[in-house]
Design a protein around this nucleic acid. Sequence first.
DNA 1: ACATATCTATCTATCGATAGATTGACAAAT
DNA 2: ATTTGTCAATCTATCGATAGATAGATATGT
Lengths: 177, 177
Amino acid sequence: MALRDAKDRILDAAEDRARLGGYNGFSFRDLADDVGVKSASVHYHFPTKGDLAAALADRYAAKARARLGDPATLTARKAIEEIVSLFRDSLMVEDRMCLCGVFGAERDMLPPEVNAVVARYFEMLLRYLETAFGPDWDGPSPASIVSRLEGALILARTLEAPEQFDSAIGDLVRSSG
Amino acid sequence: MALRDAKDRILDAAEDRARLGGYNGFSFRDLADDVGVKSASVHYHFPTKGDLAAALADRYAAKARARLGDPATLTARKAIEEIVSLFRDSLMVEDRMCLCGVFGAERDMLPPEVNAVVARYFEMLLRYLETAFGPDWDGPSPASIVSRLEGALILARTLEAPEQFDSAIGDLVRSSG
DNA sequence: ACATATCTATCTATCGATAGATTGACAAAT
DNA sequence: ATTTGTCAATCTATCGATAGATAGATATGT
């Protein structure tokens, strides 16, 4: 065993590269070099690239889910703050796209097993907000919030203007705290 | 001369493929086969892939600009309707991503000359709305509208649920007509 | 001994890109 | 009217690099 599990370190490298350049933005050799092994060893852990990317999106979704917390225990305002913070950190701290946002944009050329996991990520985000909002919610829809966050990431990064993120999210934060 | 200018037919093929799979979702050979020439002929018109993608994004932006019309002659409501219709057709009619949305998501691995054109596309959209809104506008910011549209495309396509687009855009359309 | 994990070595396919020949159209020179 | 020169556009052929993937040997730990 290395410092950490090799499988995890491979996924770390893949996540970093994929969030910068998408599915074709990394190769088995890239990841092998990053981690310090040979590309055949990456294939040992993830036989195909589809396997790897699906596992990657799955771990990404699980980490997001854990960070967001249990929506049944959150007010609508707090849930919005949590999900905004998740995307804000992606932009401001990590300077990376949302992994599932990139994969979603490229979806028509991705292996179907990857798309399935990416879809589950977005369903999870929507359910999270729905649960926190409850049946009487009359504010912005979960879909509009998730869309705005995903799009704001693209916009702010493309314009190389992080403040555009706040401009895009503005009234969301205002209306929620 | 073929039925249409070869350069244009190459860009047509590239636009179609790029909107499905991103920058690495097409190759010179793909486009050559689509158009019925050899890949060397594609290189004749666009020496590098960066040249091609930059020209592609530029044409894409010009077409959008022409379709949207002059914002100085439009009410805020009408301008919102126009830009919503642009993205709605991308989803419902063309079943494709926004070209600059995909390129924006992949931006960190794209040639800089492509990113420059993509950024100009988004600046154009923001200016379009700003101009139509005028200085007294107190509705949603241009950045929030563009973000929502771009994100709604990703969300609806990923979930293979076009109705999610309306759910994400809903109150925008409602408040504007 | 066995399983896990890595290695070396290699395969086929494709990538973006280039060199150099060929074609056809059109204009200028004879 | 015919020849010559020029140019745009395409072709054939190929380059070196890299892609994802595989076979089989090797090392390590239990």
